[in-house]
Structure formats: structure tokens, C-alpha cells
């Protein structure tokens, strides 16, 4: 028997247009050597991202991030005015793989969100997206959309 939730997770994807992927990576590079972070505004049902909200990392650390709470509030309001929702968060790992750390899993705020990781370890930044549901990490494809 197919677990409908597992089925849904395996079907999930993030549609992140190339220009927004570039914006995400550029913000992470600008924040280096600290971790860069931000929020993604889009359609929760399709996983299509329409807007990137780079935010300050108030943890100001190379191994931790905390999205500035006031910038999150502003992003949430802006997204709502545009008919969007905050559907995910991105952050960089400056020296490790683009894979959620135990800290990322423990602090994942919302199981419906997309968790985008950008690794700056290698010369070329790499970007991946995951779902994190009850501590279980599932990678999902990142499509540039049309």
C-alpha cells in the first residue's frame, strides 16, 4: 500500500527560475565567510518560487544562521500582498556539503517548506533542495521552470 504522504513527498519539486537561483547564490556569496540566508516566496501548491527575500543572518556566524525576525515579517507581508506565501528558506554551508545538518533538521520550522542549501565549499556553488518532515530529509529536484 502506498503511503499518500510519502508519495506526495517523492513527487515534490522546487521550481526556482534561473534568475532567482542566481539571486540566492549571489546573496550567499556576499554573506561569505558567514552563512547567508533568506526566504522564498511562491505558490505552496506547485512549489514555484516567484520571489527571493535575502535576509540578514543575525547569528553572524560561519556555521549558524538565524533569519532576521523583522525582515521575515516584512517578507511575509510583501509575499501576502503579491498573493504569494513564504514557502521555504535558503542558507549556505560555507565549507560543507549542500545537505541539511542535524541543526537544520532539529530547527526546521515548517514541514510544508522547501529547504534550499547552497554549498560554497567548491569553486562553483552548488544548490540543492529538500523537504524535512518529522526529522526525515528527502531531496527534491530543483527545476528552473519555463
Amino acid at each position: 500500500m502506498v503511503d499518500p504522504e510519502a508519495e506526495q513527498r517523492s513527487d515534490s519539486q522546487l521550481v526556482l527560475p534561473a534568475a532567482l537561483q542566481a539571486e540566492v547564490v549571489a546573496h550567499c556569496l556576499a554573506a561569505f565567510p558567514e552563512e547567508g540566508c533568506g526566504l522564498l516566496g511562491g505558490d505552496p501548491t506547485t512549489g514555484v518560487v516567484r520571489r527571493c527575500y535575502p535576509t540578514r543572518n543575525v547569528a553572524a556566524s560561519s556555521c549558524l544562521y538565524t533569519v532576521d525576525p523583522r525582515e521575515y515579517l516584512r517578507a511575509d507581508r510583501d509575499a501576502e500582498q503579491r498573493g504569494l506565501s513564504i514557502i521555504g528558506v535558503f542558507h549556505s554551508h560555507t565549507h560543507t556539503d549542500p545537505y541539511p545538518s542535524p541543526t537544520d533538521v532539529a530547527q526546521a520550522p515548517d514541514p510544508s517548506w522547501h529547504y534550499v542549501l547552497v554549498s560554497l565549499r567548491d569553486e562553483l556553488a552548488s544548490l540543492r533542495s529538500y523537504r524535512i518532515v518529522e526529522g526525515v530529509i528527502t531531496e527534491e529536484p530543483v527545476e528552473p521552470g519555463s
Binding site: 556566524s61 556555521c63 549558524l64 544562521y65 525576525p69 528558506v89 532539529a106
Partner: peptide, 12 residues
């Protein structure tokens, strides 16, 4: 009054 989750994590 607005409530939002705290969004945090990191490689540590």
C-alpha cells in the same frame, strides 16, 4: 500581533 516561526539552522 503577528506570530511567525523562528527560522534558524546552520552547518554546526
Amino acid at each position: 500581533v503577528s506570530i511567525l516561526p523562528a527560522v534558524a539552522g546552520g552547518a554546526a
